[in-house]
Design a protein around this nucleic acid. Structure first.
Length: 293
DNA sequence: GGCCAGGTCCAAT
DNA sequence: ATTGGACATGGC
């Protein structure tokens, strides 16, 4: 195999791929096989060096956001002491830049699911509707383009459940070009436009904006983030998701989404935050605990 | 076995 | 403007 190398300091392949933002990878002995859009490539990290083949450097830089100054991003987030533990636990974790359509479909699939199941569902859609692809001895299937996913009955057979109809609708809108429009829109308009897609509401829209469009201010609130944010900043009292988003936006601004990804990964891994159980509801619009940074 | 899952939608307050 | 239940299926 002819592989290339690239110097990628302050980047963790492992933490970036394994933090639950992306579902199309496998790992064996430190070698990652990755499917992103129509591309299949292999990559391995040795210290600051990335060893890869099956994709060019341009593609790698795009996907892993290697052109982005995470040094200053992390320095900015580090001004918030509340993030130290998560930042220190997963140094080099980056928000990836996924293919917009694949990301949209994946996070529709993620609704009321869990990572192992999402991974399986997405893989099933690929094997069933995608295009065979090969790299060296590795065979796989690309994630199906929107025109191939127009099959609600077939998706139900793949156990996608109620998400099947959403996926079909999303595919139709994707074919109409809605995902290309998004790139040129400001965050609010982009989000509103995404939410036109059935099955895409606030949370999924924020995932897509964050994980595919590089909108690092997007702050998806799922059950885990809700839990960790309520415990860290709202005295353990239940508040509306919109209050959590507003708080995150005010506290972390344009980098809220990066903070989100650290907190998400950290809260799940630490085990301190079982997502079970509901918080007692706060009676009225609660002032978030004021915390010094 | 039962509860809840990287939610969304709709109907009934 | 908020809240509860249905939705398919399965992980733990």
């Amino acid at each position: 195999m002819n592989s290339s190398v690239h110097h990628a300091p302050r980047f963790s392949l492992k933490h970036s791929l394994e933090s639950g933002q992306f579902f199309r990878w496998t790992e064996k002995d430190g070698h990652y096989t990755v499917l992103r859009g129509q591309r299949l490539f292999r990559v391995r990290q040795d210290g600051d060096t990335l060893d890869y083949d099956g994709a060019d450097l341009w593609f790698l830089r795009e996907f892993f956001a290697l052109d982005q100054d995470y040094d200053s991003i992390e320095r900015a987030l580090r001004r918030d002491r509340r993030l130290w533990e998560a930042l220190d636990a997963y140094p080099g974790l980056r928000v990836l830049r996924q293919d917009p359509w694949e990301c949209t479909a994946a996070f529709i699939t993620s609704i009321a699911s869990n990572i192992p199941r999402i991974t399986g569902n997405v893989a099933d859609m690929a094997t069933h509707y995608g295009i065979p692809i090969r790299l060296g001895g590795v065979s796989a299937h690309t994630f199906p383009r929107p025109d191939r996913l127009d099959d609600e009955a077939g998706l139900r057979k793949l156990r996608l459940g109620f998400r099947s109809a959403y996926l079909v609708q999303a595919a139709r809108l994707a074919r109409s070009g809605i995902l290309e429009e998004i790139a040129s829109l400001a965050y609010d308009d982009a989000k509103t436009t995404l939410m036109v897609i059935p099955g895409v509401a606030e949370k999924v829209a924020d995932c897509v904006l964050l994980f595919a469009y590089g909108r690092l201010n997007a702050f998806p609130v799922d059950t885990w983030i809700r839990k960790v944010m309520i415990r860290m900043f709202f005295k353990g009292l239940r508040v509306p998701d919109r209050a959590i988003r507003a708080f995150a936006s005010e506290r972390w601004g344009e980098l809220a989404g990066v903070a989100q990804q650290y907190l998400y990964h950290w809260s799940r891994r630490s085990g301190a935050f079982t997502s079970r159980g509901r918080e007692p509801r706060s009676s009225e619009a609660p002032a978030p605990v004021s915390t010094r940074r």
